[in-house]
């Protein structure tokens, strides 16, 4: 039962990772940019919410300000940094977003100090209330809300991409930006919109992180790694981020349980188990890709 409980906790945790990873996957899918500042942008969103709650705004209400502000910041980020970087090849966006990550971390440290922050006190009983199934299984209400939000965010993005004309323009631009321009699509505004969506979802994830745990100015790096792992495990697609998030979440909770049982040494705790799964999936993908390039596994085995 303990193990089952851990798996359920992992699935619930996957919802948070899916929200965190969706923006990273979107930017990669549409613009082929790996945004190394994604985790720090999530934390920036959390600090924005913190400023508002410090002024007495309800945390849920603060989202109505934080998400649009971060989306507007996304447009700015595209116009000021990403657009110029993209023009200079594949590596430059990597460097410029890495630089941005460091700038955000240090500005946040400058302004807010190194204290651990949390929205735990802002959400009343939601922080600890749960449904109890039997004696072993506990399902936190906040975790369920986050998982449902993740499904809502991914479903919303999916509907946007498949059903709206702007969404179709985004898919077309992702596939071939030059030709998109030739049928009248302004690829710059499509890219700006994609960045806006990515930052809004990142900020949402940051606020949820603050509700379920704590955050500080340097918490972004770990979040970036989790998001990146979820995206790679899930295979770079939209719903893949939910699958990847859940796989990562389950790996981490099982890892924690294995440490608790004394089966493995606690080196990095559950995160280490997540890293192992990520590396295994990554290796499998690389090997599979290399095999496909040589004509599939049958051909390669036949040749040997």
């Amino acid at each position: 039962m303990n193990w089952l409980n851990q798996i359920i906790q992992g699935v619930l945790l996957g919802g948070y990772y899916a929200i965190l990873a969706s923006g990273l996957a979107l930017l990669f899918g549409v613009m082929r940019i790996i945004n190394l500042a994604h985790g720090d942008l999530a934390i920036l969103g959390a600090f924005l919410a913190l400023v508002l709650t410090d002024h007495g705004v309800d945390i849920w209400v603060s989202l109505a300000v934080v998400l649009p502000v971060m989306a507007a910041g996304g447009v700015l980020l595209y116009r000021v940094i990403l657009e110029r970087s993209l023009r200079s090849g594949m590596l430059v966006p990597l460097l410029s977003t890495f630089g941005l990550a460091i700038v955000i971390e240090n500005l946040l440290f400058e302004k807010f100090g190194a204290d651990q922050r949390s929205f735990f006190s802002q959400i009343g009983t939601l922080g600890y209330s749960s449904w109890q199934i039997g004696s072993q299984i506990t399902i936190g209400k906040l975790d369920v809300i986050i998982l449902c939000t993740a499904i809502g965010v991914l479903g919303g993005l999916q509907l946007f991409l498949s059903r709206t004309s702007l969404g179709r323009a985004m898919r077309a631009t992702a596939e071939d930006p030059d030709t998109a321009e030739l049928v009248g699509i302004n690829s710059r505004s499509v890219y700006a919109l994609a960045t806006a969506l990515a930052l809004a979802t990142a900020a949402l994830a940051g606020v949820f992180l603050g509700m379920r745990q704590t955050f500080d100015p340097y918490a972004g790096q770990a979040q970036l790694i989790f998001a990146f792992e979820a995206v790679v495990i899930g295979g770079m697609t939209l719903w893949g981020t939910l699958v990847g998030g859940i796989v990562l979440g389950v790996a981490q909770t099982i890892g924690n349980q294995m440490v608790a049982e004394g089966w493995i040494k606690d080196v990095w705790g559950g995160a280490g188990a997540g890293d192992v799964v990520f590396l295994v999936v990554l290796a499998a993908r690389l090997i599979y890709g290399a095999l496909e390039e040589r004509g599939g596994i049958q051909t390669v085995l036949g040749r040997a």
């Binding site: 179709r168 898919r171 009248g184 699509i185």
Partner: peptide
């Protein structure tokens, strides 16, 4: 409007989506 060499359709979009996309823009 240019019909580019090699057609350059959006392969992941349906025929109708390719058409409506251009109509919108």
């Amino acid at each position: 409007t240019l019909v580019p060499e090699g057609r350059r359709l959006f392969a992941n979009l349906t025929v109708e989506e390719n058409l409506t996309l251009a109509g919108r823009a």
